[in-house]
Amino acid sequence: MTALLVMLGAAIGAPLRYLADRAVQARHDSVFPWGTFTVNVTGSFILGVLLHGVAVHAVPGSVNALFGTGLCGALTTYSTFGFETVRLLEQRVRAYAVLNVVAGVVAGLGAAFCGIALAEAVWR
């Protein structure tokens, strides 16, 4: 059953990633990968909420499998993050490549901590 929940979540997360990435990137006239940045930060926030929810037994394992492993696993994308960083380096826009790495990691961790903080406030 868990494998089916992960697959269902991924079947939703992967197209959602593509559509969100394209929608966000279309709004920016920049070589910076705003779409990937946005989906990674959003996924990190959701994972933070789920992480705390599971820790305090407010979120069942099946929900975590569906949304955490499945949806967020397909929504967030470290491989695209890495590829886009290398592409920025190849295009000789080193400042954007460094910004992508630093901002991506800091914002992702910050979003996860914000998700945890929100979940703590909700499930006290």
Rank of each mutant, 00 (worst) to 15 (best):
L5W: 14
R27I: 11
A121L: 12
A3P: 12
L16F: 14
A3R: 07
T42D: 01
R27N: 10
G82E: 08
H52W: 15
A23I: 09
F67C: 11
A55F: 08
R94A: 10
A121T: 08
F81R: 00
A121K: 12
A58T: 08
L16Q: 05
R92F: 11
E120F: 00
Y18G: 00
M1I: 11
V54E: 02
Y18L: 10
G53C: 11
R22K: 13
A14K: 04
L4W: 14
A23Y: 15
G104I: 10
L51M: 07
E120Q: 13
P60A: 12
G110C: 04
G108P: 02
L89P: 01
A3H: 12
G82K: 00
R87M: 12
S62Q: 12
W123S: 04
A103S: 13
G104Y: 09
V59R: 01
G43E: 04
I12G: 02
D21G: 13
V59H: 01
H52Y: 15
G70A: 13
H28P: 05
G48L: 09
L19R: 06
W123P: 01
Y78W: 15
A55L: 12
L50A: 03
E90Q: 10
V54M: 05
G70V: 11
G108Q: 01
A65V: 04
V86S: 04
A11M: 15
R124Y: 04
T69K: 03
I46F: 09
P33Y: 05
R22A: 13
F113T: 02
G48Q: 07
G13V: 13
A112E: 02
G110W: 00
V49E: 05
G43C: 09
D21I: 03
L109S: 04
T2E: 14
A112T: 07
G104D: 08
A97L: 05
W34F: 14
R124Q: 09
R27C: 12
S62K: 10
A65N: 05
A55K: 03
A119W: 04
A74C: 11
V6T: 07
P15Q: 08
N64T: 03
L8V: 14
A107Q: 03
V102M: 06
V54L: 14
A55C: 04
A3W: 15
N40P: 11
L118M: 13
T80D: 04
G110K: 00
G73L: 05
R94H: 12
F67K: 01
G48V: 05
Q25V: 06
G53I: 13
M7H: 09
L118D: 06
M1Y: 11
H52V: 13
A107M: 09
V105P: 00
F67W: 12
L66V: 09
G61S: 10
L109N: 10
P33R: 01
S79E: 07
L19V: 09
R87G: 02
L51G: 07
A103C: 06
